[in-house]
Computed example of a mutant assay.
Amino acid sequence: MTTSLSPFVRIRRDLHRIPEPGFQEFKTQAYLLNYIATLPQDRLEVRKWRTGILVKVKGTAPKRTLGYRADMDGLPIAEETNYDFHSEHPGFMHACGHDLHMAIGLGVLTSIAERPLADDFVIAFQPAEEGPGGALPMLQSEEFRQWRPDQIVALHIAPEYKVGTIATRPGLLFANTSELFIDLRGKGGHAAFPHLANDMVVAAAHLLTQLQTIVSRNLDPLDSAVITVGKIEGGTKQNIIAETSRLEGTIRTFSADTMKLVKSRIEAVVAGIEASFGCAASIDYGANYHQVFNDERLTREFMDWLSARPDIRAVECRPAMTGEDFGYMLADIPGFMFWLGVDTPYGLHHAKIEPAEEAIDLAIRTVSDYFRWKSEQP
């Protein structure tokens, strides 16, 4: 490791080595707390919430509280990068950029702790964004309620944009999302006697194809939705008719009403499979995330502010089917989320993603400067 690295790039690399699942970010929490303890403490207050952290920097003449959120958890993905700072937790990786998000958050906190704003500032290091969802319970916690910001901001890395690009939009940015788990139970048997059994692999195959007709045949063509089944399990051996099968997937929609419609159609299709194949079925929607809806005025104000910066290319992007539990915070607190360009050919949740680390210090400067500017506004 060279000696010329930014301290926050070093921090990102340290955090990249220790990805942890949601609500199990114990090493991550300890690392963040150890760093936070090195900052000037005269205006700093720190609270733990489960495996997350809330930090408040008291302002010099506060008239409001400005907030920032950084997520913490990793993903169950085996890393395939070329890094020499590989994940030390087999089967887990920071494949969604939360290592960068935390390093940027620490950089912003450092800037504000060393030179406090006029306004109070709160940063939330939030666990379990990838599941089962940490934003909503953190938002509802007594610790957060006592320090509730009047405005909140977050970012997410974007592999498709060059470093120096920030993309966002007023209004809808990310979709409503829901997990989807469907279990089918029939009757197993010998492969040579299918008439004496009730094959749940065949039932699952029919269900899979029927699910794909919901978007194409039940939704307005001008509406937007996605149903993706990413995993199917069924059977135990090639010559045994499967007694059970399981489909695991996700639903994405741009409106809450469309989400309700999609789920009602899924339930109708599954009921039809039960009747057609004489099986029993159950549906579990798992974690549901609220859409990310940016405050119109604050987002436009931010984009106008960005346009004056020579180091940033501001882009108004289209909405994405991405899911983010930060949407729960934006449903309760005015604010916005934006994409941060990190210029890598591999997408989010890919085992080979290698975000450009130059984006870290750029983001720290930009976010810190924005909060300083915002704190000076009436």
Score class of each variant (00 low, 15 high):
M1R: 09
I11R: 04
L15H: 04
I18M: 13
T28G: 14
A30C: 07
Y31C: 12
Y31S: 13
N34M: 00
W49N: 05
R50K: 15
T51F: 04
L54Y: 03
V55L: 04
K56S: 14
R64T: 10
G67V: 09
M72P: 06
H86Y: 11
C96A: 15
H101V: 04
M102Y: 09
A103P: 05
A103D: 11
I104C: 12
T110F: 02
S111G: 12
D119V: 09
Q146S: 15
R148D: 07
P149H: 00
P159A: 07
G171S: 10
L172N: 07
S178E: 14
I182P: 12
K187Y: 01
G189W: 00
V202K: 08
A203L: 06
D220T: 09
V226Y: 01
V229W: 02
G235D: 11
I241P: 01
R246K: 15
L247T: 10
T250F: 00
T250M: 07
I251V: 13
T253H: 10
T258W: 03
E267H: 00
V269G: 07
S282H: 08
Y285G: 11
A287N: 11
Q291H: 11
Q291C: 11
F293Y: 15
L298F: 08
F302M: 08
M303Q: 14
W305P: 13
R309W: 06
R313A: 14
E316T: 14
A331S: 15
D332C: 06
L340I: 01
V342N: 09
L348Y: 07
I360K: 03
D361Y: 02
A363N: 09
D369I: 02
